[in-house]
Design a protein around this nucleic acid. Structure first.
Lengths: 230, 230
DNA sequence: CGGTAAGTTGACCTCGTTCAACATTCGTGG
DNA sequence: CCACGAATGTTGAACGAGGTCAACTTACCG
């Protein structure tokens, strides 16, 4: 018995009125500014909660909203005809979903862990875009940054071997979580495998390779630390 | 040899290949309208000529212009620290260069064959963008389409084997050249290899595999025809 | 406890790379 | 015109990275 690769789990998002106390700013160097964009998610937006592995948005359905991730991790993936899945992005808190979608979603978004989102209607975004040049600049910078990221991923997929690719991934992940101790991975080996384009077993082997070379430390399967280069 | 990714353990391999580029968005479907954008390249822009393998624009340098390809093919690539190259796009006549670049070029553009470009200054584009909502819509649609294409490429790189990937590439290329007879490839095996993420030898072998299965016809190395699926 | 899912490890095999030889085309100079 | 070398493409043989399958461990949860 195999579990479906992309079976949309029909857990309904729990809508509840909760004021988020303002999330921590991301220390991401690569990401463009988002002040104007962020300010759209003001007072009137409600928080939605999603259980782990629930579907947040489905490829091909109308993209009627723009989301801001308040907490948790969302995997953004496309699925081929034969059920193979490719996760092209793990979206973290402070990031947006739907920046590069106009009419319909061009990917499927699933909650990795417990996810809290704020949303605003697409119409409102379009209205703001029509009148606000700053917002247009920010949106454009975001899409371009995403495009650049995808192209770097293509390069990385082609040019690097499994352990190095994993190390790159872990390093970049660690860069978003300024921490001195161990960093905990919200996603499992399967997700990492589908992100880096390899099998779960290879991910596991790559972890042990990195550990044996003392390039990373592993407290347990999901708590790691990247060691400084020699 | 079978190309189905999760083929059952059938020792007598059923020789078939998925030929499923049809119902998903073709690059033609995927390409947004460009009327307003195209109209910018009106009277006053003059044509520039480039010899084969000459550099048109260099990664990291100021993106001071927007280009329209009048004729020829441009390879758009990123290069890793160790010199490995990944061609993420072959831009053909009628397509634009610099849609997704704001301050500096984020890729290197090289002429595959003899290339003729029209260009307009970036400043002019920005001015037009500030006042023309139609142009904004078109630009946005173009960038989003590019992003979608990259994500499909990521998926394809991970999920398909060499011969199938080549067939997909040839089919999509053929779709941009509505022709009944043989279609001639402007780029060499090396370019195809760097586009599809494999070695030149594998590209060559994939060609002969496709030819032997009568999925394509080859008049010579650079003239091919994709046969209709059985 | 037992059951299930996730992670790790090993054995084997496949695909693609690498290295090498050879074929073919093309441009240049004799 | 042919001779020659330089690219470019094709084919073969051996190697290796990673996939697949299977066994086992561990953690979690009833």
């Amino acid at each position: 018995m195999t579990f479906s690769a992309a079976g949309p789990s029909n857990s309904t998002p729990v809508q509840q009125m909760r004021h988020t106390t303002g999330h921590r700013a991301e220390p991401d160097h690569n990401r463009p500014r988002s002040d104007t964009l962020m300010s759209l998610f003001g007072s009137r937006s409600f928080a939605q909660h999603f259980q782990p592995n629930s579907t947040i948005l489905l490829d091909g359905t109308p993209a009627d909203a723009l989301y801001l991730i308040v907490s948790g991790t969302v995997r953004c993936c496309t699925i081929s005809e034969d059920g193979q899945r490719q996760i092209f992005r793990f979206a973290q808190s402070g990031e947006f979903l739907g920046i590069a979608d106009i009419e319909t979603w061009h990917f499927t978004g699933e909650a990795v862990d417990h996810v809290i989102l704020k949303s605003i209607p697409r119409r409102q975004v379009e209205r703001a875009l029509a009148t606000n040049p700053d917002l247009r600049r920010e949106m454009r910078a975001h899409i371009c940054a995403q495009l650049e990221t995808r192209e770097k991923q293509l390069l990385s997929l082609v040019t690097t071997r499994a352990p190095e690719r994993l190390l790159q991934f872990l390093s970049e992940f660690a860069a978003t979580r300024a921490s001195t101790g161990y960093i905990s991975l919200p996603m499992g080996r399967r997700d990492i495998a589908e992100h880096l384009g390899m099998s779960v077993e290879t991910v596991s082997r790559a972890f042990t390779v990195l550990k044996d070379r003392h390039l990373i430390d592993l407290a347990c399967a999901e708590k790691f630390k990247v060691n400084a280069a020699a």
